[in-house]
């Protein structure tokens, strides 16, 4: 078995690698350097690292100012504080001002675990998706993050990156390559499509296995980039399967279900079911408790698949 790295390790590795050739890569933190583990960047490039302290609004504004001078700032915090806490700063100083700032929000949804409701973002992708021109990506595993980081840095515009910090289930092999503007079809199927992102991808594959054992063939598509969403892949798949389930570690409102539904309603309306958090706040707990509480298990995807297939008939 390959040695799986933590996502934060990949994040810092990528930054270090890119910084060698791109002197404009800078890292800005708000007192969570030890959580996102960018200390190695600070050690290697002390002049290109700034810790603004616990002041996320100022962090975003400082990043915008750096970007006006040609810098490519990567800043991070726990997802609620990297987005909700400084939303207007992101909206005006970064997006409206067209500044090339990369914002990293960690510990998405139930992966915030013991930090609980104050730190458990089910709304971050939704609010970020609502900012014009904001690219919103939730990489699935270490291989994908590694492949996407250089593309994110090279893309000239604001990007929101939603990542787990620690080890996550490895879906793809080392060296796998991804296009930041495409969805990835993991499994072909004919009866329904399961669109999934983040930690829900492995659960979707499990659900597809169970469905397959019953003779139901689910296409599994990993939609890691929520915006701009890969309409072509989505429409092509549901045109074939005629039904879908959308699985996300996020609130049902304005998340991946919303993004996929927008595409379907305009292009190819089919029955769709949502596996997501149903307008609830987070709470403390470990993943097994939280995934049951918010119905984010593979069985919940399976149940949604059976339900949507009935609607299809």
């Amino acid at each position: 078995m390959q040695d799986i790295k933590e996502l934060r390790e990949i994040y810092c590795d990528s930054l270090l690698q890119m910084a060698e050739t791109n002197k404009n890569i800078v890292v800005i933190e708000a007192d969570l350097t030890n959580c996102i583990k960018t200390g190695r960047f600070k050690a290697a490039y002390p002049d290109r690292f700034i810790n603004v302290g616990i002041a996320e609004a100022n962090m975003i504004g400082v990043c915008a100012g750096l970007a006006t001078c040609g810098k490519v700032p990567f800043c991070s915090s726990f997802a609620p504080f990297a987005t909700r806490r400084c939303y207007d700063q992101i909206f005006i100083s970064v997006a409206y001002s067209k500044q090339n700032v990369k914002i990293v929000g960690t510990d998405p949804g139930i992966t915030a675990e013991l930090n609980g409701g104050t730190h458990m973002p089910f709304e971050d992708m939704g609010i970020m998706r609502n900012i014009p021109n904001m690219v919103c990506i939730e990489p699935t595993d270490a291989s994908m993050l590694k492949s996407l980081m250089p593309q994110i840095a090279a893309y000239n515009g604001p990007v929101y990156l939603r990542i787990m910090r620690k080890k996550c289930e490895q879906i793809y092999g080392d060296g796998a390559e991804f296009d930041m503007f495409k969805a990835f079809t993991l499994r072909q199927g004919s009866d329904l499509t399961i669109f999934a992102s983040g930690i829900m991808v492995s659960r979707a594959l499990e659900a597809a296995d169970k469905l397959k054992s019953e003779g139901i063939y689910a296409e599994v598509i990993n939609v890691y980039t929520w915006k701009p969403i890969d309409e072509e892949t989505i429409v092509k798949s549901v045109a074939k399967t005629g039904a879908c389930v959308v699985a996300e570690n996020h609130n049902v409102h304005n998340g991946l279900f919303g993004a996929v539904s927008e595409v379907l309603a305009q292009n190819c309306p089919v029955p769709a079911e949502s596996v997501s958090v149903k307008d609830q706040f987070g709470e403390v707990g470990k993943i097994p408790y939280l995934e049951e509480k918010f119905a984010l298990r593979s069985n919940d995807i399976y149940d949604a698949a059976i339900k949507v297939l009935k609607r299809k008939k």
Binding site: V62, A64, G65, L66, S97
Partner: peptide
């Protein structure tokens, strides 16, 4: 720098000075 939502321009100015 774009401004209008008060309090934000000064942060960007700090970023420019740091750059």
């Amino acid at each position: 720098m774009t401004a209008g939502s008060l309090g934000q321009g000064i942060s960007a100015a700090v970023g420019m000075a740091l750059a």
